[in-house]
Amino acid sequence: MIRLLRIELIKILSYSTFWILSGITIGFYFIFLLIGIQIEIDFQGVDINVYFRFPVVWQTIAYYSSWFNLLLALLLMILIGNEFNFKTFRQNAIDGLSRRELFFSKLILIGLFALVAFIISFFSALLIGVIYTNDLDSINIFGDSYFVFSYFIQAIGLMSIAFLISLLLKNIAASIVVFIGIYIFELILRAYFALISVSWGQYLPFNIFSDLCSAPSLKKMLTNPTIRESIDNATIAAKTSGEINEISYGAIIILAVSFTLIFFYSSYMIFAKRDL
C-alpha cells in the first residue's frame, strides 16, 4: 500500500495542475469561510453566530465543505484522464502493476484526497468553534462532529462516481461534462418525481450524498426557545402524518456507503475486464 501511495505521490506532486487546482480550492475555501464568519445579521430574535458555535459548527462546516467536493471530483477526473491520455495505465501494467494494484492505487488517491479535505474541515470547525463558543466547559464540543465524518464519506462517494465515469469515458473533458450532466439530470428527475408525488427522487445517489451534509436548520438561529419548540412540534406532526417523508440519517449513511461500494466495484470490474 505504501508503495502504491509513493507512486501516486510522484505522479501528483510534480503536476502543476494539481497544485493550481488544490491552491484554488483551498484558497477559496478559506476566503469564503472568512467572509462567512464575518456576516452579521442585526435582527431581533436571531443569532447567526450560533452556526459557528459548538456543536452546530460541525454541521455548518461539513455543509460548507461539501460544496468543494466538486473540485475534488474534478481533480480526480483530470488525474485519471491523464493516465488514459498518456497511456500510462497501460505502461504501468507493462512495467508490472497488476490490474488490482492499478485499481487500488487510485483508491488510495481518493482516500488521500478525502482525508486531506476531512482534516482541513475538522480543524476549521474546531478552530471556529473554539473562537465563537463562549462557554466551552458547559458544552459537548464534539457533540455533532459526526457531520464532518459524514463529509468524509460524501467526499469519497462523489469521487467514486467521478472515478467510474473517468474509467468509462477515458477523457477528461467528457468525464467532467458527464459528471455535471448526471448531477443536473438527477436534479430534474427529482423535481419530476416530486411533481408526481413519488418519493424515489430522494434515493438517487447525488441526493443521498448531498443529504449526508445537509445545511443546519434555520430555526437554530432563533433565540426564542418557545418558537424553536413549536417549529419542532410542527415538524414532528408533519412527519407523523406523512406530509414530510424523510429518510433517517442512519439510512442515508447506509445508502451512501452502499452506492460508494457499488461504484467502486463497477470501477474494479472495468479494470479487471477491459483491455488497457
Binding site: 507512486i7 510522484i10 497511456k87 500510462t88 512495467d95
Partner: peptide, 21 residues
C-alpha cells in the same frame, strides 16, 4: 513509449523502479 510528459526522466524512472520494487 508512454510516460508522464510533465515529469522529469528521473521521476518517470522512479515510478518504474517503485513498480518493479
Amino acid at each position: 513509449p508512454n510516460f508522464y510528459s510533465y515529469l522529469s526522466l528521473e521521476k518517470n524512472l522512479e515510478i518504474v523502479a517503485r513498480i518493479k520494487n
